[in-house]
Design a protein around this nucleic acid. Sequence first.
DNA 1: GCAAGTAGTTACCTTATGGTAAGTAATGAG
DNA 2: CTCATTACTTACCATAAGGTAACTACTTGC
Lengths: 122, 122
Amino acid sequence: MTEKNNHNQCPMESILGQIMGPWTPYILWLLSNEDKLRFGEISARMPDISAKVLTDRLRKLESSGLINRDYQPTVPPTVNYSLTARGTELHGVLEGLNKVAIRWDEEDRQQLSAGKPVIAAE
Amino acid sequence: MTEKNNHNQCPMESILGQIMGPWTPYILWLLSNEDKLRFGEISARMPDISAKVLTDRLRKLESSGLINRDYQPTVPPTVNYSLTARGTELHGVLEGLNKVAIRWDEEDRQQLSAGKPVIAAE
DNA sequence: GCAAGTAGTTACCTTATGGTAAGTAATGAG
DNA sequence: CTCATTACTTACCATAAGGTAACTACTTGC
């Protein structure tokens, strides 16, 4: 990790350390929309992440208290992930971010179809 | 980068690719509160980031169109960074995140002073 | 004429991160 | 008896990311 340990300075740094990093917020976003997903379902929605890394992210989110891991010892095993109460508190933020994302995406599309290059400034 | 290129799938992935990653959202958070900061000021507020990495993050944010770089050829040089119009659109999201961060921080402090260990579950 | 000050850049090296492939457990199907 | 299934774990290796130190430019102050 680059963002060091938590509990040092401002709360913002601490929360960023928990939810930032590759894939992590996207996982939260998926779970915040579907309330329960199996490992394989998450994996299918994120084809570019390897099982190793996905496991790692899920473990970290679990130890931060943001997601629950529900292991059912069926054969083959069933593991469901869902947001904790704390995890659901991020829903509003993630939704807000998604709205911005959609807006920018639309703007960029229009720019693109208008013939302009790629980068939008100012 | 791990989150690959942009413009593939959903807008969320694209925006996360731009603002995610170590330090980046914190830089945006700083700029979204102070509307203009010199390189050295950002650096002072983030003592753990090296000049090399900070430069890299600022360049990437600039090329994403989220911040402006205003280089004044004084001696010694003055370089001011500020959010672009697009960059300011993240203010609400960052503020929302900060509110959650502060709430969790308070909760964790109370748990801590109540004697409980470290990790909060469910 | 030497140091200071800002905002970097560059080279070099170490560490962290991530991918791939193989293995594991338990059981039901064929 | 073997395969398929799920959700991993482990070992091994390649690449990416980041730190440190040194260096640049230009002018003012001493």
